[in-house]
Amino acid sequence: MLVALVAFLYATAAWRQRAGGRAWSGWRTASFIAGCSVLAVSMLPQYLPFPEGDFRQHMLQHIMMGMLAPLGLVMAAPVTLTLKTVPARYGRIITTVLQSRLFHLWANPVTALALNIGGMAALYFTSLYYEMMMQPWLHYVVHFHFVAAGCLYTWVIAGPDPAPRRPSVPARLIVLGVAVLMHSVMAQMLYAGLFIDLPIPPDHLKHAAELMYYGGDITEMLLAFALVSTWRPSAKTSQAYQLRRRARFV
């Protein structure tokens, strides 16, 4: 219900922009609706291909809500749309929060990577998974962390919304490469059953690890494409390139 409300608010804000003669990409609206749809389906286990309680179902939920849904949500530039829609006084509040020192720490790609990968490591290599199965409220907290950490990581790596002190594209590509490596190592450790003690049949654990490995690769590739597709060289870089090119024909 909450996801449907958020999707409705975004669609309404986008419609108001277009109705008021202000341009807003239909692709961004479609991206946000798609992200909300993936998130909604991930929260309805009965619609997933694996039976309830199956670890493969849990892994598919993790990929959908922590990696795939954030990609659709973040690439829709919700912060930019919000700033265009809300009254100026609220926009100043949002801008102040985004420019705060605490938010600068959260918006660092290394911090975002630590929250993203660290959450998975804590779930699979500590007793957190046991506790989550025993405490329903903790289950919701873990799901919220996956969504929030996934959106934060996607935003600081490739989000179209402005981010404070965002590093260069090559630096973000390095962080993305580290994330791919750590994700792959974690999947291989799950497959081999190293340093884990989960009440899961070995064949289910291996299939879930394969799902994590290949599903993670696909979403990371989509994120990398989103990053490089929005890369625009700076004016100085473009000017230097043109000068070098002309010099070759002098």
Rank of each mutant, 00 (worst) to 15 (best):
Q188N: 11
C151M: 15
Q135T: 15
P199W: 15
Y129K: 06
P201I: 13
N116V: 02
M186Q: 15
L113N: 05
Y129Q: 08
A112T: 03
H145L: 05
V97I: 15
V147S: 00
E131L: 15
A171W: 11
M133Q: 14
A179Y: 02
M186K: 09
P160Y: 03
T96R: 15
L138T: 08
H139W: 12
A158K: 10
Y130F: 12
S168G: 14
I174D: 05
G193A: 07
P109H: 06
M182T: 11
P162L: 09
A114W: 09
W137P: 07
E131F: 09
M189R: 11
G150C: 07
F103C: 02
V147E: 02
F195K: 09
Y124C: 05
I117G: 00
T111N: 09
V142N: 08
H183Q: 15
L98E: 12
C151N: 03
H104P: 01
A122D: 05
I174G: 01
Q135N: 15
I196A: 02
V97W: 14
M133L: 15
H145K: 06
V147D: 02
L152M: 04
T95I: 10
I117T: 06
P167W: 09
R166C: 00
Y90M: 11
G118Q: 03
I196G: 00
V147C: 03
L128G: 01
L190M: 15
V110T: 10
D161G: 00
R89M: 11
V141E: 10
Y153H: 14
L190D: 07
S127A: 13
T96N: 07
P199Q: 12
A148L: 08
V97S: 10
Q99M: 06
S184I: 13
P167D: 06
S184W: 12
P164F: 01
G177W: 05
L173V: 05
P167N: 13
P202C: 07
L123W: 08
I196M: 08
T95D: 14
L128Y: 04
R166P: 02
H143Y: 10
Y124W: 15
F144G: 14
T126F: 04
P162K: 12
T111S: 06
A149W: 00
M133K: 13
P160E: 02
T154V: 14
A187E: 05
G118T: 05
A148R: 02
P201H: 13
F195H: 13
A148N: 01
L115K: 04
I157M: 04
